[in-house]
Design a protein around this nucleic acid. Structure first.
Lengths: 127, 127
DNA sequence: AGACTGTCTCGACGTCTGTCGAATCAGACA
DNA sequence: TGTCTGATTCGACAGACGTCGAGACAGTCT
């Protein structure tokens, strides 16, 4: 449990507004990388869209044509990227999404409605 | 130039709204994967935020401590993920972003303010 | 306690990725 | 035409990744 992404502290002006500094890129890239696998993208979606905000591993595993250890490995990757949290309750382990990080990634990718000239960006930091 | 991602035809309800189907995941994951490297994330940002909407490779390369071929390799990855377009004009090659795909990714990551679940993200200063 | 179920960790395997130097291609210009 | 510069492709290499089977750990139920 010691490993947890340092994504939480970052703020994210849109990609297209200003150049992303190296540290921000280094901190955020692992989250994108974690979503860069079809299985993990589906896992992330199943977790984020689960009723009650959480879903059991026992409901995730049979949805794929993969072994338990492989699913577990992907879930660990999502966990270490800071995208999900896990909690054991009795026999089962439940995963839930961390909307904050998803929100940051979405904000980074948001394309400001301007087309050629970037608007006189007054929204410097996420104040 | 034969390789181009099939991302263009997809539409993307938020990740957290319904489970992403396998085909959508397979089509979109490469785009996330392409953004999953710090160098490419910075490249993407430099391209997307460039004045006039485009930027010369000769302006991208010196911004990193990497060789020309390596930068070229990363640019190709972004190209094949459907995130950027390249155009040669005389001696120089210019890259520009494809906002459509970025928009799709952002839409997919958008967290809808669902009812009970997600505690309003108070952790980061992104408000 | 012992057996059973669910999940994770470990070790191994083939494949993919990031990086480089050398070679090649595409235009510009003398 | 030849040469120069900018960008890409090629070949190679170390390291990371996705997958699996076997084993270990955590709880539950007889």
């Amino acid at each position: 449990m010691s490993k947890q992404a340092a994504v939480d502290v970052l703020c994210c002006p849109p990609l297209s507004e200003r150049r992303v500094p190296a540290e921000t890129a280094a901190a955020l890239a692992p989250a994108f990388k974690a979503l860069g696998d079809p299985v993990r993208l589906q896992l992330m979606s199943m977790i984020a869209s689960a009723e009650g905000g959480e879903i059991c591993v026992c409901d995730l595993t049979p949805a794929f044509d993969l072994t338990g250890p492989t699913i577990s490995h992907h879930l660990r990757t999502l966990r270490e990227a800071g995208l999900v949290d896990a909690e054991r309750r009795g026999t089962w382990v439940y995963y839930r999404a961390r909307p904050t990080v998803l929100h940051q990634l979405a904000a980074l990718l948001t394309v400001v409605p301007t087309e050629a000239g970037p608007a006189p960006a007054a929204r410097s930091e996420c104040s």
